[in-house]
């Protein structure tokens, strides 16, 4: 359990660093600004994303496609709860535009990464199949 928590924290650290640096670069390019609340929301979003994706072992028996969809929906639900809590703490309700912007910035990287995962499944399988053919050929030559 301790090892799992340590691994999770390391992954969270890496994810947050990448997202944070990516966000800083994007802000420098487009001249945007961030604030303390945005930093907290970004961290919480990374936490939720890393946590939900870490649950992939629970979906071992279902197809990866279903796993991706279920994980996305779970992450969306957790993010909605987080946004509501942040809105409650701030004493403001979240505007429809705010919801839209949040989910857009969450969904786009998720879809890109899911597509990459989908591609990896196919490319890795192709590599494995080539390896199998090579092993079979070597074995038939060795006979």
């Amino acid at each position: 359990m301790r090892e799992k928590i340590i691994t999770f924290l390391i992954e969270l650290g890496c994810v947050y660093t990448i997202v944070s640096v990516g966000g800083a670069i994007a802000n420098m390019i487009v001249g945007g600004q961030t604030n303390n609340l945005n930093v907290i929301v970004m961290f919480m979003t990374c936490f939720i994303g890393t946590f939900v994706l870490n649950l992939h072992k629970l979906f071992d028996k279902v197809s990866p496609l279903l796993m991706i969809v279920v994980q996305y929906l779970a992450a969306c639900a957790l993010c909605a709860v987080m946004i509501l809590i942040v809105g409650w703490i701030e004493g403001e309700s979240v505007s429809p535009r705010g919801w839209y912007e949040f989910y857009r910035s969450f969904t786009i990287p998720y879809v890109i990464l899911a597509g990459y995962y989908y591609y990896r499944v196919f490319s890795d399988t192709k590599k494995q199949e080539d390896l199998i053919k090579e092993i079979q050929e070597n074995a038939s030559e060795g006979k």
């Binding site: 197809s63 990866p64 496609l65 279903l66 499944v121 199998i132 079979q136 074995a139």
Partner: peptide, 16 residues
Amino acid sequence: NVYKIKQLKPDMNMKV
């Protein structure tokens, strides 16, 4: 038995 595998392929739902 890897020597007996005819094909390794993922299906549409990504199960290999």
